[in-house]
Simulated scan of single mutants.
Amino acid sequence: MEEPLVPLVPMSHTAHIRSHRKPRRSASTMAMRAGVAGGILGSVAVAGASASAYAAEPVTQTIELPTLTADVASQVAQSADAMQQTAANYELQAERDAATAKAAQQAAADLKEAKAEAKKKAEAERRAAAERATRAAERTALTSKSASASTSTSASAPASGSVATVISFLKAQLGDAYVLGASGPNAWDCSSLMQAAYKQVGVDLPRVSQDQSTVGTEVSLSNLQVGDILYWGAKGSAYHVGTYIGNGQYLDAANPSKGVVIQDLSGYPATGAVRVL
């Protein structure tokens, strides 16, 4: 009998090549690998959770740390401020102590100077009092002499000794003070001194310098005689007067800083002169 013919099935052109597909793994192998993978994943999960837990702590610390740092910084700043204030207080106290010491030294120096000045002033006053007493005695003697002379001479024509009497009276007032409006015995202005001096010999002069410049006889400055009255300013409106005492000098109550003094005509030339003796 002939065997039945088996139909030929065309073969694939790759049939002779071994299959590239991986052989199937057995269930046990897959289960084992799944268990291992599960354990690894579980470990990873636990580790991740732990890492997350550990990572969460710095968040809390990071939030609290600036607060702690700010508190410490504030305390440090306050301490620094306190130290700086203390240093400033010490410096201020040192300055105050130095100022107090300096003030005490200055006060001591001022006190010493004041004592010396007071002593000097007292001595000057003592000398001035002695000089005033001497001048007072001289004035008394001159007054007595002029009174006796006036009884024997005419007021309009004094004796030749009258000039010496006037000059002696004027020199007795040297060192007296100049006070505007004063008329003796220890303080004068220019015209009151002239009035008092010439009154010693019976010549009554007006009180003010303007009027005194118009009395007697006008004389030139080149022909002056001792006892002539000098004036400064225009005749009839003179602002100052004095008496010529010879040798280019005159005596007057000059001003508050000089008082009654003798001066040179060259230093302060007069405007004109009148003669009453």
Results as ranks from 00 to 15, higher is better:
K199D: 13
Q200T: 14
Q200L: 14
Q200Y: 12
Q200R: 13
V201M: 10
V201G: 12
G202E: 02
G202F: 04
V203G: 00
D204S: 15
D204A: 14
R207H: 15
Q210F: 12
D211R: 13
D211M: 10
Q212D: 05
Q212C: 07
S213D: 06
T214A: 15
T214Y: 01
T214R: 15
V215L: 08
V215I: 15
V215H: 05
G216D: 02
G216H: 12
T217P: 03
T217N: 11
T217C: 01
E218P: 10
E218C: 02
E218F: 10
V219H: 06
V219L: 02
V219S: 00
V219D: 00
S220R: 09
S220D: 14
S220W: 04
S220M: 08
S222F: 01
S222H: 00
S222D: 13
N223H: 09
N223V: 00
Q225S: 13
Q225M: 10
V226Y: 06
V226S: 06
V226A: 11
D228G: 05
D228A: 02
I229V: 15
L230C: 05
Y231I: 04
Y231D: 04
Y231L: 02
W232G: 09
W232K: 07
W232A: 01
G233M: 03
G233V: 09
G233E: 02
A234Y: 08
A234L: 07
A234T: 13
A234W: 03
G236C: 04
G236H: 08
G236S: 09
S237Y: 10
S237G: 08
A238M: 09
A238F: 06
A238Y: 00
Y239A: 04
Y239L: 01
Y239P: 03
H240N: 06
G242T: 01
G242W: 02
G242V: 08
G242N: 05
T243Q: 04
T243D: 11
T243P: 02
T243Y: 01
Y244K: 03
I245D: 10
G246T: 00
G246H: 04
N247A: 12
N247I: 00
G248T: 08
G248S: 04
Q249C: 08
Q249T: 03
Y250H: 15
Y250P: 03
L251H: 05
L251F: 06
L251Y: 09
D252H: 14
D252Y: 06
A253Y: 03
A253I: 01
A254S: 14
A254K: 11
P256R: 05
P256S: 07
P256H: 04
P256C: 00
P256D: 00
S257A: 11
S257F: 06
S257K: 07
K258W: 11
K258D: 13
G259L: 07
V261Q: 10
Q263S: 15
D264L: 08
